[in-house]
Amino acid sequence: MATFTSTKPSEEETNKVYDRQIRLWGADAQRRIQASRVLFLGLGPANVELCKNLVLAGFSATVADHRKVDAASLGYNFFADAESIGKGVGEASVENIAELNPFADVKIGSTSSCSDAATAEKLVEGHGVVIVDVPCTRGSEEERKLINEACRKSGAKFLAVRCSGDGAAAFLDLGAEHTYVVETGEGAKKTTSAPQKASYCSYADAVGVAWDSVKNKKMAQPPTPFLLDRLDALFADRPTSKKRSRDEGDFVAFARRELAARSLGLDDTILARHARVAGKCPAHIAAVVGGVLGQEVVKAVSGRGAPTNNVFAFDAATGSGTALFASPVERAAAPKAAVPVDAIEL
């Protein structure tokens, strides 16, 4: 496979380019970032943004996408252009991704699907982070579970994100035991905590919980983007016999049924709108989601700061981005120092 790297740069040279971020997260975090490779499965709207953010930060990247570039994808994939319509998404994008950062190694990965644990393990091998852009992969929920299990086995951090015109939902699995430190204060007053541990449940466990349990205090029901994500997952995986077209009425009726079965409900206007914008994600929404999740990946790999455990939901209608917890085990009481009461107050 083609790789795009320049000659090995001197550390002094990279220090100059990374100066403004090293001043933020320190030299050690920067070294960990540069030693880490991210596998982007599906170069959809969210992964285009994540890929830009993480390659700029110094991560190396493997991009894999089974699709061909089409005209609509030019609305979010700025790595491809009109001339690349019809070419493979990976092939069309890899050169421009590599150009973002001559110090990062960028290559194309395999686009074959994973039918068993062994192929999933092979796919994940060599990567510190795996990010699935759900609507832009062939895979079903089952395949994502296989990939996640392979990540848990190899120690890779796992992220699955689904972005639409309404917002997004993302699942993070940083493993059964993720170690990190918490920093408080700035400059000379900065203090670093002793190592903390957080435990993440598997993707299978996270998506297996009762939907209604995934809400924060005082929420009447789970945030809309989370419910829409779960409905999309069910809708996409419904038996083939029932797949006719994805027209508005189909989805609305389906969603209403599934929600009612769980004693939940969403307004019909929300469902009807979602039927139109599911699978469509304008670039700016991807930018918001890719920015927040990019930061979570930096937290995860650098081991600095408590990353979200384990769901992030962004609602474009309200502008709210929420951290949620979807797990069969009780949320561990956070150690006192782990989450600073007001991390951002100086």
Partner: peptide, 16 residues
């Protein structure tokens, strides 16, 4: 200090 991710978020929110 300045990083790509925070800028990406606020610029996305501005277009929103």
């Amino acid at each position: 200090p300045a990083i790509a991710t925070t800028n990406a978020v606020v610029a996305g929110l501005q277009v929103l």
